[in-house]
């Protein structure tokens, strides 16, 4: 006849690692999450949602910064040479400009290339053909080194080019780039402020949760104190709880952020293509996601440590 085996007390109830000081602390933190499933889930959801917005703002800022950089990258100064400047002289001039420190590269468009481009872009090539001669000048497209628009370095370069005798006209339009940069800067500020407020909210959520946790564990802390547990032994499970909340909250916020980016990727790309822009919404890199999670873990740790200040005083004896 089979009998129910006697409960085995020889090995304890937990895994081997839970009987070390750090393992004990971690197991107590995880036990709390498990025992208070609904409450923990609610706290995590609140944390995840609170942290999600700063994370979304951060991911959006990364994309907008790329957009601004790309806009500057594509920015160029078109210099139209005088008609009496030959293609050879024009090409030499372009080559000499490309050696300047404030110039990334130059492209020379010969008179023939200019005519061909005009022909592609409009239907006046037949009119020009009637003239018998090519009236278009050669042009040099100058790509400045990428710098902040606000510094005015591109304006200064345009001024220098204007003063060169072979140059007839310089065409430069940075107004929309400036507007974009200013808009991105404003968004970054607003987003940054929002992120700070929301991050503080998340910190308060963690701190409050851990204060409640401390109240719940009062008897355990008292027993540990009576048994001569060092302060760090009593504090460690609480600090680990803060870190676990931060980690899970950060993961939840990152997943939410990725889902939002994924959702807006398609419409944003469609909008970008309408403006003939190569910009596409890109997903954050693993490093950026890890950065977000690390910041959230730090928030959890800060919340836990600030909650512990008074209990540590209480158990100082």
């Amino acid at each position: 006849m089979r009998t129910k085996p006697e409960p085995d007390a020889l090995d304890g109830s937990g895994a081997r690692w839970t009987y070390t000081r750090r393992g004990y602390a971690l197991s107590q933190s995880l036990r709390q999450l498990k025992q208070q499933r609904i409450a923990s889930l609610g706290t995590l959801l609140m944390l995840g949602i609170t942290l999600a917005l700063p994370v979304i703002l951060y991911f959006a800022y990364l994309n907008l910064a790329t957009l601004g950089h790309r806009s500057l990258e594509g920015e160029s100064i078109t210099t139209y040479l005088r008609t009496n400047v030959s293609d050879i002289a024009g090409a030499e001039l372009a080559e000499s400009w490309s050696t300047r420190e404030d110039v990334a590269r130059t492209d020379y468009l010969s008179k023939e290339q200019s005519l061909a481009m005009l022909g592609e872009a409009s239907d006046i090539s037949s009119v020009i053909a009637l003239l018998g001669v090519n009236p278009l000048p050669g042009a040099i497209v100058v790509y400045p080194q990428i710098t902040d628009v606000a510094t005015g370095s591109t304006d200064r370069l345009a001024e220098v080019l204007r003063s060169i005798p072979e140059v007839e006209r310089v065409q430069l339009d940075l107004r929309w780039v400036r507007r974009l940069a200013a808009a991105i800067s404003l968004l970054a500020w607003i987003g940054g402020l929002l992120a700070v407020f929301l991050t503080l909210s998340a910190l308060l959520v963690i701190t409050n949760t851990i204060r409640l946790e401390l109240a719940r564990r009062k008897s355990e802390l008292e027993v540990a104190n009576l048994l001569g547990a060092p302060r760090h032994f009593m504090n460690r499970p609480i600090i680990y709880t803060g870190a676990v909340y931060g980690l899970l909250g950060g993961l939840l916020a990152s997943i939410t952020g990725l889902m939002v980016l994924n959702a807006v990727q398609s419409p944003a790309d469609t909008l970008s293509s309408l403006y003939q822009n190569e910009f596409t919404v890109s997903m954050p890199t693993m490093t950026q996601i890890l950065l977000v999670i690390s910041v959230c873990v730090c928030l959890g740790l800060i919340g836990a440590v600030s909650s512990l200040y008074r209990p540590s005083q209480h158990f100082r004896q």
Partner: peptide, 28 residues
Amino acid sequence: NQLLHDRNVFDNIALPLIIGGYQFDDIK
């Protein structure tokens, strides 16, 4: 008796040894 009711008897008795930093085999 100040026992912790959310864990079993073994773990209650093991607590001073965990605090003292004993090895698992010794605790057992």
